[in-house]
Computed example of a mutant assay.
Amino acid sequence: MQKTLYDPIRKKDVPATPEEHVRQATIRFLLDVVKVPEHAITVEFPLGLVDPKSDERADIVVNNFREGASIDRPWLMVECKAPGEYTWPELQVQLNRYLKILTPKYVMLALGDATRYFVLDPVGKTFKSVNSLPEYSNS
C-alpha cells in the first residue's frame, strides 16, 4: 500500500512522493509561520484559469483578493521540487514560463530543504531576492 500525506488545503490524502513532502512542509510553513489563512491558498493552481492555452499548474498560489487583486496577481506563487530533482537554473526556466501568466507580489522556490524568496519591484517589474516572506496579515 502506498504511503500518503494529508493535505490540509485539498482536504484529502495525497501520495507521499518526495516532491509532495516538500509541498506539505511549505504549506505548514505558510500556515504556521507566514500566517496565511487556509482559504487563501490553492494547491496545484491551474494556470489555464488565467491563460486557456496553458495546461501547467503552479504548486501553490496564495491569492491577494483582500487587496482587490485579480486571479492573475496573487500575493505569492510557490514552486516546490524534491531534492536532487531539479537545479536552480532549471527551476528558474519553469518559473519564467509561469511568470508570463501570473504576476505575484512574492515568489518562493523550495528545492528540497533549500528555499529562496523574491519580491516584485513594481517599478522595474523585476524580482529582487529577499531573506524571508513577511507575515501575510502585515503585507
Rank of each mutant, 00 (worst) to 15 (best):
P134T: 02
K125C: 05
R28P: 01
K100M: 11
S129W: 14
I9E: 00
G84C: 01
L95A: 07
V107N: 10
K53V: 11
D59K: 04
P15K: 08
D51Y: 08
F45V: 05
V22W: 04
T87H: 02
P104S: 04
F29N: 04
V36W: 00
V93C: 01
R66I: 10
Y86Q: 11
V93N: 02
L91D: 00
L31F: 06
N138L: 15
L49I: 10
S132W: 12
Q94H: 07
E20D: 07
V62Q: 12
D72T: 14
E67W: 09
P15G: 11
D7H: 04
V107G: 05
P52Y: 14
K100R: 11
G48N: 02
E38S: 10
K12G: 08
K11I: 10
K11N: 15
S132D: 13
V93D: 03
V61E: 01
P15R: 00
C80L: 03
V34Y: 08
W88D: 02
T42M: 12
P46I: 10
L99M: 00
F45S: 03
N96A: 09
N138P: 10
V50N: 04
L99H: 03
T42D: 08
Y98W: 03
P83L: 05
N96H: 07
F127V: 07
L102E: 04
